[in-house]
Simulated scan of single mutants.
Amino acid sequence: MTRMPPRVPVTAYVALGANLGDAAAAVRQALQALGTLPATQCTRCSSLYRTAPVDAGGPDFINAVAEVSTGLSAPELLRALQALEQDAGRERPYRHAPRTLDLDLLLYGDGRIDSPALTLPHPRMGQRAFVMVPLAEIAPHWRAAARDPALAGQRIERL
């Protein structure tokens, strides 16, 4: 039997958020869980941030961004993130519903994907301070994008 060599690890970025229950605990637990995914380790994580919902209802969100090194493909990583959401009790009763945990794959190396299941880079990441500010904290090359004037009106508070 021929054994496939392991994949070269790819650096990916994941946005985390929650606004139901103990949102801060849910995000912290998800940050730890990222490191338990197969062939994946969490290499950096931002501070936690409190933000007002954007295009969503409910209480304020707790958000963060994590950098991971992964041997999973982008679709495999997305499925693993969705499994973590399910484990945290995520329900999707309607678009932009409040949530116990939301995990979005933002970037996967230099990869570009446009499929019904996954678009990379994440198509709305540059429009959201709750993504760009924590991303810039752990990936300095994103700092200029995080200062985009279009983000200035979005309330974000580092915890």
Rank of each mutant, 00 (worst) to 15 (best):
L78A: 09
L78C: 05
L78W: 05
A80H: 13
A80L: 01
L81C: 08
A83V: 11
L84R: 14
L84T: 14
L84C: 12
E85F: 00
Q86H: 15
Q86A: 15
D87W: 01
D87I: 05
A88F: 01
A88G: 01
G89P: 08
G89T: 11
G89S: 13
R90G: 06
E91D: 06
E91Q: 15
E91V: 13
R92G: 00
R92S: 03
P93Y: 11
Y94E: 05
Y94H: 15
R95W: 05
R95L: 08
R95M: 06
A97G: 05
P98Y: 09
D102G: 14
D102Q: 14
D104G: 15
D104L: 09
D104T: 12
D104I: 06
L105V: 10
L106E: 07
L106G: 08
L106N: 09
L106M: 09
L107R: 02
Y108N: 08
Y108C: 07
Y108W: 12
G109I: 07
G109V: 02
D110V: 03
D110P: 06
G111Y: 14
G111R: 15
R112D: 06
R112F: 01
I113G: 07
I113T: 14
D114K: 05
D114N: 15
D114T: 10
D114L: 01
S115E: 11
P116M: 04
P116I: 04
A117I: 00
A117W: 12
T119S: 13
L120F: 04
P121Y: 01
P121W: 07
P123V: 07
P123A: 08
R124D: 10
G126E: 00
Q127K: 11
Q127P: 03
Q127S: 10
Q127R: 14
Q127D: 06
R128H: 04
R128M: 00
F130I: 03
V131L: 09
M132E: 02
V133L: 00
V133N: 06
P134T: 05
P134R: 14
L135R: 15
A136I: 00
E137A: 14
I138D: 04
I138L: 08
A139P: 03
A139E: 08
P140E: 06
H141Y: 03
W142N: 03
R143Y: 03
R143T: 12
A144E: 15
A145C: 11
A145T: 12
A146I: 02
R147F: 03
D148L: 02
P149I: 02
P149H: 02
P149M: 01
P149K: 04
P149N: 06
A150H: 10
L151T: 13
L151I: 03
A152M: 03
A152W: 04
Q154P: 07
Q154M: 01
I156Q: 11
